[in-house]
């Protein structure tokens, strides 16, 4: 998948994330909840390859994602957030 699309999506999520709390954690939770593992991994690779091009929040997001790569999804972080 075109990494530029992923970056645009992630950037948009960061910009719009409305929930109260640590923004990086909220964005990371959103990505874990709605993105495929491959998409998250690709974003991690891209952000960590040129971190100065990204916001501090996004850098923190991918670190959180990386640390959770093999962890159980934090189900309940956005309890009830569905798309239907």
């Amino acid at each position: 998948m075109d990494v530029n699309v992923l970056i645009r999506m992630a950037d948009q999520i960061e910009k719009n994330m409305p929930f109260a709390g640590n923004k990086a954690e909220l964005v990371a939770t959103h990505l874990v909840k709605f993105w495929t593992p491959v998409m998250r991994a690709d974003l991690y690779k891209e952000v960590t390859s040129r971190p100065t091009d990204f916001s501090p929040v996004m850098c923190e997001v991918v670190e959180i994602l990386h640390s959770q790569a093999n962890a159980v999804l934090p189900y309940g972080g956005l309890k009830g957030s569905s798309e239907a």
Binding site: G80, S82, E83
Partner: peptide, 10 residues
């Protein structure tokens, strides 16, 4: 209506 689900469930 995918935003409906996200918004109303949140």
């Amino acid at each position: 209506h995918s935003p409906t689900g996200f918004g109303l469930s949140s």
